[in-house]
Nucleic acid binder design. Sequence first.
DNA 1: CCCTTTACCCAAAGCGCTTTGGATTTGTAT
DNA 2: ATACAAATCCAAAGCGCTTTGGGTAAAGGG
Lengths: 342, 342
Amino acid sequence: MKLKELAERLGLSQTTVSRALNGYPEVNEATRERVNKAALKFGYSANANARRLAMGRVGAIGIVVPIHSSERFGPHTSEFLSGLAERVSRDEIDFLITPLINNDEISAYRRLISSKRVDAMIVSHPSLVDERVAMLAEAQFPFVLHGRTNIDTPHAWLDIDNKGAFYQATSHLLDLGHKHIAMIDGLKGFTFSEHREEGYRNALNERGISIDPNFIVHDCFSDEIGFRETQRFLSLKPHPTAILAGSMMTALGVSRAIRARGYQLGKEVSIIAHDDVFPYLNASNMVPAMTTTRSSIRAAGTRIAEMLVRLLDGEPPETIHEVWPVELILRQSSGPPVIPAK
Amino acid sequence: MKLKELAERLGLSQTTVSRALNGYPEVNEATRERVNKAALKFGYSANANARRLAMGRVGAIGIVVPIHSSERFGPHTSEFLSGLAERVSRDEIDFLITPLINNDEISAYRRLISSKRVDAMIVSHPSLVDERVAMLAEAQFPFVLHGRTNIDTPHAWLDIDNKGAFYQATSHLLDLGHKHIAMIDGLKGFTFSEHREEGYRNALNERGISIDPNFIVHDCFSDEIGFRETQRFLSLKPHPTAILAGSMMTALGVSRAIRARGYQLGKEVSIIAHDDVFPYLNASNMVPAMTTTRSSIRAAGTRIAEMLVRLLDGEPPETIHEVWPVELILRQSSGPPVIPAK
DNA sequence: CCCTTTACCCAAAGCGCTTTGGATTTGTAT
DNA sequence: ATACAAATCCAAAGCGCTTTGGGTAAAGGG
């Protein structure tokens, strides 16, 4: 069923039918009603490609997801996308996921632009100087960045205060009396990892505590890494009495390793994890309940969708940016250091 | 940069340029070379909408993801999509995610069909009699089902042997001497949940062990549910000495609850979990290593993508279906029941 | 040297929609 | 009744690509 047929059946012109369906004012309400009914009855809905070709707008936003590298399509991404979807679907926008195979990100983004399949994009996991952002901003293609990068060209972005979060967490541990604090951070190069390390370092420096490079790990977020690195930490002398974990997955592994060593969480070794708020992995339900720096990645997705809509409505990118504070939630996995009874 | 411009610059007709780019034989190799170079140089890439409008093929496959209900966009979905992406991107197909808000799935699928935004679809989480499948099969729209359903109309599908998996796991526990075995299954109504329950029941019936309805739970897969339900299980008399967990998330909660009670995994209470193989949550790394029924959901995604390609190449849907066996991997979380020293 | 193939290239007709620029009808004030 | 504006509706021109149905020049066969 195409527009032409529908118009013929109704004894109207294509113009009128199109206008009726798209809510233009120059059509009688009664006619509009009739058209809508007929469309529903015959199951008509405009051919999206024709529509897009004619309008130049697509009704989709693009996301490039690396599927092999470390920042692959994992639980963070899916939570984020859920948040996005929640908002974006209100406007009948859907999103297009372009898997990235060979790691040539730039050209993937370029192709997405020039093929006109999306109206805007979202870019995640920026590095300190992100060439994708540079390219997109340069090309004046609408996008919003999830995270931050040091690119001058104005662009829209939303980030959480990673530095503040880890500064706060580290400071709290120092307040509790910890002197040896380790950190399992994200991969080197990503802004969020760097910011977290900065917060961590600042807190330690402020108290005049020297930084032991053995206490800092940069890797992916996984249970396995958490476990392995914590084992390593605990074999050092002196070993850390507190560990910052970059994600809840990591925290699981860290906890296991601490327990495996015969230590109690929040006693011999404390742990503070960054919690992106996964519905299926709740920090407060753990035993002991886990102290976290919390910021919902899902909520960030929703907000970014909103920013995207504003951007597409013509708001200039330089006015669109936000830093979200991260809350430190004290629970039982952090406490003053307890000397192991040995 | 559009086709016309490129053609003018090259002193060729649009036809020839188009043919050169799309690999048609009736163009001189030298010319093709020249065209390709120019396209690259000017950053030309066909307007996807125009192309699709002209060709009738879209180059995208659709997925409807519910974002509020229980089968929401969680870690299972993202792993599955990763697998899909891996295969599908080879053919420059990308996928379109349509978030489902009001739970009117059927109409979401219908809209996706009639708007011609996708060439095919993937439907997941079927119920025993799935109306989406009925509708799509009826409409002759290409799709492949991840799971199984009792719909007569021929359609392509891939499923794992959930029944066999749980039959095997339950039988193994029975062999070890367990008499009270509980199960935390997925939500009622979904085929996979029903199949799992069937496998579980069959194994028990075969040994003449009566089934205690208190030992069967249907709910979402989350750490929290696992914890809560296991606490409940352990407060029953007699309580289960073994628990089947529907997912690794659930298993985390179950383990916690067992430990919180002062029991050891694989001793007082055994646990077998179904493992969809999450890269960030590895059963063999747990302490104790977890016995699992394992089947990679990511691999399933990849395979389904392949099926999709075959389908689009004209292979009839009724010839396309597979059941994957599930392997039972014995590790330390399952063992003969140990009477609690009390 | 003429005629038939190939090989290569082109003009123009869609694909199904939106939108411009008018045409027609109706309503209202003169 | 006449004029003018407002309310409706329409025919046709794109949007940028693919593809059909020829053309023309070079190559091969008699």
